[in-house]
Design a protein around this nucleic acid. Structure first.
Lengths: 226, 226
DNA sequence: GTCTATACCGTGATAGAC
DNA sequence: GTCTATCACGGTATAGAC
């Protein structure tokens, strides 16, 4: 079996259940929550977009909160797996030595770039959702719930690539990376507008290529600090 | 007259109108919008927190949207002035030469650090609000409305400090900075939790000191790219 | 088991009376 | 400038159709 994408598309978009009411509700909720947040969306809007009855989302997911959780959960597992696998891959590829910062950053970021590059808007919507959750004092806990393990793994690998750098500095570095990544996932189009079209918001390749280089330099700069 | 803060506190927190119903509504709205976003807050909640009648916010601001705009607007002008002044100050201090990247970043960031360090929670709340607006596809336009001029000024100064770097790269660099800044303003406490307390979320001094160094390195790294 | 129609009850924004 | 009445809309429970 050929595997040409980091996130197996079959796992989700071409799933045997696709198109069924249950999944239409999830897709509709994902799209609307991504744009307007939890409170900006009503169950009635979701039901309408999914072309199902108002009561159906509640039947399947118990409550609005339950639906939101299900939406967030659905792709988190796939994201974690893809990114964790990539981190393992570069570790293995480096033999016994520590992988380069660039390789670690690429492993951490490229599954996200790939998700945003999909023609299907589902992953892009999910990314937007993550971005909003990550910036909200009341919703962040969903991030810690689903992504802490992966992030600790990432920080540990950066630590190996930069021996001697204080661990707290590495976490600050991750904080900066997380912010930049979060804003990139939000995909608001602001950078395109701000740069008068010089940077294209849908040019994810350039975005992430620059990001890897930029943050590798940033992390290396912390080593001097002491 | 002694001026010991970048943002004059008198301009707002000790204003002659403080404590009046009109201002109590703005303060209450700021606090609630900052935590829950536009749709996560009801006019009744705002009125209750401000200890005014439900109808008063509408009387003064026309609508919920009008109130939100007023809240966002109120501190934007002060922020812009403080940060723009700082940029001018480092330009002047450098004589004819270009200021260093570190000085430019400090001028851009320190007024925000200072805002978050205020004992009064108003500025911290406002920062959170900005962070959420900045990450939302439907609300970003408020950022461009209020902050584009300042950001272009910042990018122009970075361009002078890094001659030869492609302008698009500088905008990508700003995009990364904006993300990191945005997440810092969101002040969700995640970095503290993630680092097991190694980084304290309220340690704004360390945060911004690291940020200046980290991003100066990042920006310099783009020059190599070509 | 899967889904629809509908009813319930609380709450929202706002207009108009005071 | 303040308060109240109104009416639409919110999430959800339930009864029963397929």
């Amino acid at each position: 079996m050929k595997k040409d994408t980091l996130i197996s598309a079959e796992a989700l978009d071409a799933a045997p259940h696709a198109g069924r009411r249950f999944d239409r509700v999830l897709d509709a909720a994902e799209e609307l929550f991504a744009l307007h947040g939890f409170d900006g969306v009503t169950m009635r809007q979701i039901a309408k977009l999914a072309q199902v009855d108002v009561a159906l989302p509640n039947y399947h997911f118990g409550s609005k909160q339950g639906l939101f959780d299900a939406v967030f959960h659905r792709r988190a597992a796939l994201f974690n797996l893809a990114r964790s696998n990539e981190l393992d891959r570069v570790t293995a590829a480096a033999g016994g030595a520590a992988p380069t910062l660039e390789d670690i950053l690429a492993a951490f970021l490229m599954p996200i770039a790939e998700a945003q590059l999909q023609s299907d808007p589902g992953w892009r919507n999910y990314c937007r959702l993550v971005a909003q959750v990550n910036s909200s004092p009341v919703w962040v806990q969903m991030m810690t719930q689903h992504y802490d393990d992966l992030i600790r793994k990432f920080v540990d690998m950066v630590a190996m690539a930069l021996p001697g750098t204080p661990r707290s500095d590495l976490f600050w570095g991750y904080h900066f990376l997380s912010g930049a990544l979060s804003l990139s996932m939000a995909d608001t189009g602001r950078i395109q507008h701000l740069s008068d079209g010089l940077c294209r918001s849908d040019d994810y390749e350039t975005l992430y290529r620059n990001m890897i280089q930029f943050f590798a330099q940033g992390f290396r700069g912390m080593k001097i600090n002491g």
